[in-house]
């Protein structure tokens, strides 16, 4: 079972438990849309071509669905397939919905489907994607806040 570390290491400036509080569990992902890839029949060890790699994504257990930064989705040309009203703590708002994939190289795992376009970098967040519970439903997540370590296994 592949396991990836999504927490932080000790360095000279910051404690990993403090960094984990500020930034949250983070994993590097690739994002894109590959119309030639067979997303549903991908048992041959291949993975889809991504338009961008090494994108920091927040593992967000508070999110039902996964999201991609709206500006990033536009920049890499993900197909926009809907605009819909969504509810949130601030009330209802309209967001774009894109077709694409999030690929996690460390786990060799691909989530394909629709993703909400969220205003992440526009709002000052450093993450460009949110990994929600739909992606985590087949995963094991261990959060050690004392040590600033988070382990994700598929």
């Amino acid at each position: 079972m592949p396991i990836v570390e999504c927490g932080y290491r000790h360095d000279d400036h910051e404690r990993p438990d403090d960094v984990l509080v500020v930034w949250g569990p983070t994993i590097m992902v690739s994002i894109g849309f590959d119309p030639d890839y067979q997303y549903e029949n991908n048992e041959d060890g291949t993975h889809p071509k991504s338009q961008i790699t090494q994108v920091p994504a927040l593992i967000d257990t508070g999110a039902g669905v996964s999201c991609i930064d709206d500006a990033l989705a536009k920049n890499i040309g993900l197909p926009i397939i809907d605009r819909q009203m969504v509810s949130g703590v601030g009330g209802a708002t309209e967001v774009n919905t894109y077709l694409g994939h999030i690929y996690i190289p460390a786990l060799d795992f691909t989530q394909w489907g629709q993703f909400m376009g969220a205003l992440l970098t526009h709002g000052g967040q450093r993450h460009q994607a949110l990994i929600g519970r739909t992606l985590l439903r087949n995963s094991l997540l261990v959060y050690d806040g004392r040590e600033g370590q988070v382990k994700l296994a598929q």
Partner: peptide
Amino acid sequence: AVRLFGKGPYLIRRVGGPLATLPASVVMH
């Protein structure tokens, strides 16, 4: 949709689907 129209544009929507919920981390940063 991809087979017929590639990157679109096209609309894909669930009929009678529930209102999606925006994660609190997006709106409460």
